[in-house]
């Protein structure tokens, strides 16, 4: 099973963070939620691997993890 990358994997972390927040600049909350949902779907499709995604879900929502290994 392919493992979810949990070590730093981004060259310019501050830049990434700023770009992500810039997406939401001046947005209404519902608009931001819509953007986030689209983003999750786009990235999930890009990753494609359901095992990797399940590890990501478990990291994001630990109480849902099937086996907290």
């Amino acid at each position: 099973m392919k493992k979810l990358t949990t070590t730093p994997n981004i060259v310019d972390p501050d830049g990434l963070y700023a770009e992500l927040l810039a997406l939401h600049d001046g947005r209404e909350e519902d608009e931001s939620h819509a953007i986030n949902a689209r983003l999750v779907l786009i990235l999930a499709n890009h990753i494609g691997d359901r095992d990797v995604l399940r590890q990501a879900y478990a990291l994001a929502a630990p109480e849902l993890a099937p086996n907290n290994a």
Partner: peptide, 16 residues
């Protein structure tokens, strides 16, 4: 929100 995100994207990109 997720449902509408799928519908929005489906117009533009094949994967959705």
């Amino acid at each position: 929100v997720f449902r509408d995100a799928v519908l929005d994207l489906s117009e533009k990109v094949e994967f959705a």
